[in-house]
Write a protein that binds this DNA or RNA. Structure first.
Lengths: 123, 123
DNA sequence: TTCCTTGTTCAAGGTTTATTGAACTATTGA
DNA sequence: TCAATAGTTCAATAAACCTTGAACAAGGAA
């Protein structure tokens, strides 16, 4: 399981692939949650998204997000810690991720960006 | 041919559908060209995109763009005049279209946003 | 009217996608 | 060593997607 994961370099990140990733509701929710937790420096692991779908389906979406250059994954023990590649994305496509995250936040009601229980406790 | 075309209202425009539209290279090129010509108030007709693909394939993409709320089409004689729904999009998703257009412009080389001949005469 | 132009619609095709469950690997902890 | 945990990979399936060409509809010009 310690196979090195391939990530595209900054320059290899392609706009259509990024937009395609963001156009899927589950992937948008993943990116949204990564963006939220990025602000306090937290990395998330696969299990943190279990409310969004089944494990194998999530693994499929994680691969797409990693291949498109949206997120970085590092392996720590039996966990995968993931974070948004914000600096790279901002450098390649200034303002894009920001606009998407903010637009998603405004439409949070229709988009189901988080699990039901997480919506409940908005303390 | 004078059937009224259905356009979603501003509020009905959905983020995932918009991003999905923009993730296809042909549709991104259409939106890009609409955005360029919008600045001088020009509307474009279907034929203006003939270099991008065949007519029936373009009609398919036009329908998707219209259904997603990205562009408005009005019928004038035997032509369809199309424009970007910039105000509606900016109201729903501030900064998004701008970031996408600018990112596309930067990557113009890889994206083939215009026909070969148009790239040639950059006068 | 007749033809030409503009553009849509339809059916068919091949491709890619998202989703599932079962089987598997690797690490941790008892 | 053994079991539990975290996550991947594989095969299968149904749905959606993009593309093509042929047939169609409507307006403008001769």
């Amino acid at each position: 399981m310690a196979r090195p994961l391939r990530h595209p370099t900054r320059d290899e990140i392609e706009l259509p692939l990024v937009l395609d990733c963001l156009s899927d509701p589950i992937r948008l929710a993943i990116v949204y949650q990564l963006a939220q937790h990025q602000r306090d420096g937290t990395e998330l692991c696969c299990g943190d998204f279990n409310e969004l779908s089944g494990k194998s389906n999530l693994a499929y979406h994680f691969t797409k997000l990693r291949d498109a250059g949206l997120m970085q994954t590092r392996i720590v023990g039996t966990n995968r810690l993931m974070k948004l590649r914000r600096e790279d994305l901002d450098a390649r496509f200034p303002g894009l991720i920001d606009a998407v995250i903010k637009s998603a936040a405004r439409d949070a009601g229709r988009l189901s960006l988080v699990a039901e229980c997480e919506i409940a406790d908005t303390d």
